[in-house]
């Protein structure tokens, strides 16, 4: 395959430290970039605000699932023990709610945990085993001690020359164009 088939998907810029990455993120945000991401081996406290990101909606998703699971589990047990096959057990009412709390609680917790895990994966669009950034050799350090800003080509402000110049001006030690063949 020759060089001309390569498609530019964005730009990658390396930074020296979490502090440098955070300051650069603030400048990217202020310069009006929207399709950029800050990559680091660990989460950096305060980065959401530096990048101008909104809070993750995951809490609402899990909350809604938990509510449905709690009512669904209670309704299921109520129907099974009072409607479908009523059984008198130790002379108690058919649906003495106290005795049904442990199972309802366990089902609620289980569904919430599943929602938290899969909600996170869906919001992150994972699993996605290929990503254009993986083409960069340098980027492998992101899970070790590398700090990067990536700008996607679909960003309205993206321009191969201007963006590179800007990234260098805000402290990047190395910039490269990310291409996929």
């Amino acid at each position: 395959m020759n060089q001309s088939t390569a498609k530019t998907t964005g730009m990658l810029a390396a930074f020296e430290s979490p502090a440098a990455l955070m300051r650069a993120a603030e400048k990217m945000r202020d310069a009006g970039y929207t399709h950029f991401d800050c990559h680091s081996p660990f989460p950096i406290h305060g980065m959401d605000r530096a990048m101008g990101l909104k809070r993750s909606p995951l809490g609402f998703i899990v909350g809604a699932v938990a509510f449905c699971a709690l009512s669904g589990a209670s309704l299921m047990m109520w129907w099974m023990t009072t409607v479908d096959y009523p059984l008198v057990i130790s002379g108690k009412p058919y649906f003495s709610f106290q005795a049904y709390v442990p199972v309802a609680f366990a089902i609620t917790i289980l569904c919430s945990a599943v929602a938290a895990l899969f909600g996170m994966l869906i919001l992150n669009r994972l699993p996605q085993l290929f990503h254009p950034l993986f083409e960069s050799e340098r980027f492998a350090k992101v899970t070790d001690d590398g700090f990067f800003i990536s700008v996607a080509a679909q960003d309205p402000k993206f321009d191969i020359y201007a963006t590179r110049q800007f990234l260098e001006s805000i402290g990047s030690s190395h910039t490269e164009v990310v291409e996929v063949e």
Binding site: P43, R55, S56, S112, G119, M120, L126, T143
Partner: peptide, 29 residues
Amino acid sequence: IFALGWHGGNRQWKHYELAYLILAGISTP
């Protein structure tokens, strides 16, 4: 395969950290 394509972007960490917090929160009770 098991890393699921994780690339350590803050847009991933944002959801990840909240998921971790929620899982910790529901594991406690």
